[in-house]
């Protein structure tokens, strides 16, 4: 294996990691936006809450895996549930109002976390070690993120496609009136779907905690990319998010490697603009119509 082969392997791994992180960071938003048409501008703050949940519980002595995989999603899921009851449920069908309200919510959450933990950088140690490919090395944690993306993908697919709750949820999103006529309580379905989306976002926050700089304002760095990916992906939760995350994640990593990190970002945003111009319904609106 020569040095050129090594760099291709590394670039492949970087791209996989970029795609997997992006997918994890977006899937919760895809559920909330794609299914419920709520533009949740507090998405970045849900990620931040997940990261803080992991940091706080790990520093309090909880095993880091339990913090990331159990505490973060549960905590943010419960926060999502409360927020849905208090705020979001009044805003279904009111797109602009929901944007304004969730933007205010994002400021509130940032403010609360700043007040409690201060405006400084927090973090936990990255678990697992590193491995090398020739002169390059990478972290096993990157592979773990990729594995987690596959697991989340599988769980969302199975729940949506094969369980009764998934069927009810999809039916309610398509036609709440008809679902209600059939004896389903749409209010409850919305509540649980929002909480599930929030929980998945919390999981993503927990998972990036060991490799991110954690501050109350960190959500801002993720929210734009998450929205571009979800809008670029279209309404299909899984196929849409996977295809858009694959496209943008790969372009970001390879583009940054071949040019500079600055142009890497320019290339991503240019691609997004062209994509949304050509496919206003997103990738899944054109190629995977009607799929999950």
């Amino acid at each position: 294996m020569g040095p050129t082969m090594d760099i291709y392997i590394m670039l492949g791994l970087n791209a996989l990691n970029g795609v997997a992180s992006l997918f994890l960071l977006c899937v919760g938003l895809a559920i909330i936006f794609g299914m419920m048409k709520i533009v949740n501008l507090a998405h970045g703050e849900f990620i931040m809450l997940g990261a803080y949940a992991t940091v706080v519980s790990t520093n309090a002595g909880v095993n880091i895996w339990i913090s990331m995989l159990v505490i973060s999603p549960l905590f943010v899921g419960v926060v999502g549930l409360v927020i849905e009851r208090l705020l979001i449920r009044h805003l279904y069908g009111r797109l602009i109002d929901s944007m304004l309200a969730t933007w205010g919510l994002s400021l509130l959450i940032t403010g609360i976390i700043t007040t409690i933990f201060g405006n400084t950088i927090k973090g936990v140690q990255t678990p697992l070690g590193s491995f090398s490919v020739g002169q390059y090395s990478s972290s096993y944690y990157n592979l773990f993120i990729f594995a987690m993306a596959l697991v989340v993908m599988a769980i969302v697919f199975v729940v949506m496609r094969f369980t009764r709750f998934g069927m009810i949820a999809r039916a309610t999103m398509q036609n709440p009136g008809m679902s209600a006529a059939l004896g389903i309580n749409p209010d409850r379905v919305y509540m649980l779907t929002f909480a599930a989306g929030a929980g998945l976002t919390g999981l993503a926050g927990g998972l990036i905690a060991p490799v991110a700089g954690i501050t109350p304002g960190m959500g801002a760095a993720y929210v734009a990319k998450a929205f571009i990916t979800v809008v670029g992906g279209g309404t299909s939760i899984i196929t849409g998010t996977i295809s858009a995350a694959s496209l943008f994640g790969t372009i970001d990593q390879i583009g940054s490697y071949l040019t500079t990190p600055v142009y890497g970002q320019v290339i991503v945003f240019t691609t997004a603009i062209v994509l949304i111009r050509l496919l206003p319904q997103g990738i899944s609106g054109r190629f995977f119509k009607g799929q999950l």
Binding site: M10, N14, Y136, S137, G213, D252
Partner: peptide, 29 residues
């Protein structure tokens, strides 16, 4: 607002410098 430094680290590994000088700024960095 860059948060993923995977490709940056690969580039540094490819260049094999003796020393890394950093003027990165802010929480994300």
């Amino acid at each position: 607002d860059v948060t993923n430094f995977g490709s940056a680290i690969s580039k540094i590994q490819a260049a094999k410098p003796d020393l890394l000088l950093s003027a990165l700024v802010g929480g994300n960095h």
